[in-house]
């Protein structure tokens, strides 16, 4: 069973002057355990709409959405989900610790466990020193980190994060990426949206590209990387000196044998590839 299961999801809104706007045009997507899924798309493509449908915040016009096999109409579907909203806001009159206590209670955790897990996640997100201060006084990055902390609190199976890296400084981004990698190691399912290709390249197993409310492509990141190889950079040394050249994939073996014949030593072979960003741009523009 795939823990995130979206089938034929459509969503249309009534926009200005009573015009129907089709925000999602039939999305099919499944994500399983131990998988980190990057949801990539330009602004306004439907990333947030999809995530809000997953969280039951908006009602699909058509299609079914299930988390852990439970339809998202049912609040129980969110019992094992850690959700980080886009640009999150938390009751600012509470302190981080009080907020986590509230979240823990909502998930039905026993106080002792809330205390332990709370300390763990606050320390992990570097908020332990600030835990008793009201959220009102937090910086944007701190609020974002608290968002991650409250998603981690009850140790759920599924993590749904809307732009988890936004508003963070480089240190924070690195920390969140590290956490996502750890979660994969623990066999969790992480689904996050972003418009930054480098983040996907760094942590994702699979990536989905959404453009204008339709999924253009869902693919394994390592396969994209493999398919994206356009040639190789080759460095060789001979008594005459060092030399670098680029060859296409087809000519690599020919070149290698020629160099061997010439008595040169190959010191480096590096694939030259289209990066994910280029790949992404091609897809977006191609549509």
């Amino acid at each position: 069973m795939k823990v995130i299961d979206i089938q034929g999801l459509k969503k249309s809104f009534t926009g200005k002057r009573m015009q129907r706007v089709e925000a999602l045009k039939g999305i099919d997507l499944q994500v399983g355990r131990g998988e980190v899924f990057g949801f990539l798309g330009p602004n306004g493509a439907g990333k947030s709409t999809t995530i809000k449908s997953l969280m039951g915040l908006i009602r699909p016009t058509a299609g079914t959405v299930r988390l852990n096999g439970i339809d998202v109409h049912d609040p129980a579907s969110r019992r094992s989900v850690g959700y980080l909203p886009e640009n999150p806001a938390f009751y600012e009159y509470l302190s981080a610790q009080e907020y986590l206590t509230f979240v823990g209670r909502a998930f039905g955790m026993v106080p002792q466990r809330v205390k332990e897990r709370g300390e763990q996640s606050l320390r992990r997100l570097d908020l332990w020193e600030a835990r008793s201060r009201p959220i009102r006084g937090y910086s944007k990055g701190m609020v974002q980190r608290l968002g991650v902390a409250q998603a981690l609190l009850h140790d759920p199976d599924i993590y749904i994060m809307d732009e988890p890296m936004s508003g963070l400084d480089p240190l924070g981004r690195a920390l969140v990426k590290e956490i996502i990698r750890e979660l994969r190691g623990e066999g969790k399912c992480v689904f996050f949206s972003t418009h930054i290709t480098a983040d996907v390249e760094a942590v994702c197993d699979r990536v989905g590209v959404i453009v204008n409310g339709a999924l253009r492509m869902v693919e394994r990141v390592d396969r994209i990387m493999a398919e994206g190889i356009t040639g190789y950079l080759l460095r060789s040394r001979s008594p005459a000196g060092e030399r670098e050249q680029i060859v296409t994939v087809d000519h690599l073996s020919d070149l290698l044998s020629r160099l061997k014949e010439e008595g040169q030593t190959v010191t480096l072979v590096e694939p030259v590839r289209k990066n994910l960003e280029q790949f992404f741009l091609d897809i977006v523009k191609g549509g």
Partner: peptide, 12 residues
């Protein structure tokens, strides 16, 4: 204040 997203994302 956008609190609804964080609160209604809980299993309530």
């Amino acid at each position: 204040k956008r609190y609804t997203f964080s609160v209604l994302g809980l299993p309530l």
